[in-house]
């Protein structure tokens, strides 16, 4: 029973991940007074790309073709470590949050390698930015999770989320708020959303993620889009799991609460993107240092 439940949660994550993009885009459209693309547009895009053929430049090696798929495999492996709301993840062991962070890092590393493999200076620039900013957002994520681990005394992400029962809000409200804010900034930065990167630009010198994948086409690009959506879902689930304590014990209520809070998170991202401008490239490190400061503050409060 428990195994099937975990598998259902996993499948739900795989199926629902691109929907987040749809919700974000619809929210932005609503703010801009447009009708917006269909909610399922991301699915259509990925499906269309997967059926196409890929074009490979003569200057690329096998790494260019392998990068997106190994990166996808890393994100899928990471998905098995992330708990779904109050339910435990399919695989949980002490220290699994470190593995989660490094699996996501591995997927980014392969994307960066395949970007550098094209030899295009434009892609090299994007790759350099991507690793710079991720190097700054990783400590924020790590320290925030360390604060929760120290407070709950659990070393596994699943245990941490299970321990985030409603009373954590009552007896450690400040810590939850700080960790939630730090994770939100990391969520926006890791998924290349607006205060850090604008996902809509394709021909600007300031873009980060989109510039790395310019030379990928067909199924390779489709799987990159899908991996990015899945990664967004996973980080969102970590955030929601720690901040929204949905543990009623009734199965369908918990599941529904998680799905609803994920949708709300997507709406929140849409609101942030509509109401804020992208931060200047030079100021992004400052934002990420701010997130790290919030995490350190949470740790200090826990250790006090």
């Amino acid at each position: 029973m428990m195994t099937t439940l975990k598998l259902v949660h996993l499948v739900l994550a795989f199926v629902a991940a691109p929907l987040l993009l749809g919700i974000i885009n619809r929210t932005k459209a609503l703010f801009a007074g447009r009708r917006g693309q269909p909610l399922l547009q991301a699915y259509y895009d990925i499906w269309k790309l997967l059926r196409k053929g890929a074009v490979y430049s003569r200057s690329t090696s096998w790494l260019f073709a392998a990068g997106p798929w190994i990166g996808f495999a890393a994100v899928v492996a990471a998905a098995t470590l992330v708990p779904f709301g109050g339910a435990r993840a399919p695989i949980a062991f002490p220290g699994d949050f470190l593995v989660l962070i490094y699996l996501l890092g591995l997927s980014r590393f392969l994307l960066v390698l395949s970007a550098l493999d094209t030899g295009s200076s434009f892609e090299g620039m994007g790759a350099s930015r991507e690793v710079t900013f991720s190097a700054l957002s990783e400590p924020a994520l790590l320290i925030a999770l360390a604060a929760v681990a120290k407070y709950t005394g659990c070393m596994s992400l699943s245990d941490m989320v299970v321990a985030t029962v409603p009373h954590l809000w009552l007896c450690a409200g400040p810590i939850v708020v700080l960790v939630g804010l730090a994770l939100l900034i990391v969520f926006l930065s890791e998924n290349c959303r607006i205060p850090v990167d604008d996902p809509n630009t394709h021909l600007e010198l300031t873009m980060i993620h989109e510039v790395m994948v310019l030379d990928h086409s067909g199924p390779d690009f489709g799987i990159i889009l899908y991996s990015a959506a899945l990664k967004m879902w996973l980080l969102g689930q970590v955030l929601v799991g720690l901040v929204v304590p949905a543990h009623t014990g009734v199965l369908w209520v918990d599941t529904l609460a998680v799905l609803l809070s994920m949708a709300l998170l997507a709406v929140l991202v849409g609101i942030i993107e509509s109401s804020m401008a992208r931060v200047r490239l030079l100021h992004v490190p400052q934002l990420l240092v701010g997130a790290t400061t919030l995490s350190i503050l949470a740790v200090v409060l826990v250790l006090r």
Binding site: L170, C171, A172, G173, P174, V177, L178, G290, T293, L294, L297, L301
Partner: peptide, 18 residues
């Protein structure tokens, strides 16, 4: 732990950092 007061105090810290 006086929770409401703690939240206000942490908010003070955050405004300082801001």
């Amino acid at each position: 732990m006086n929770n409401a007061a703690d939240i206000v105090l942490v908010f003070l810290v955050l405004t300082n950092l801001m």
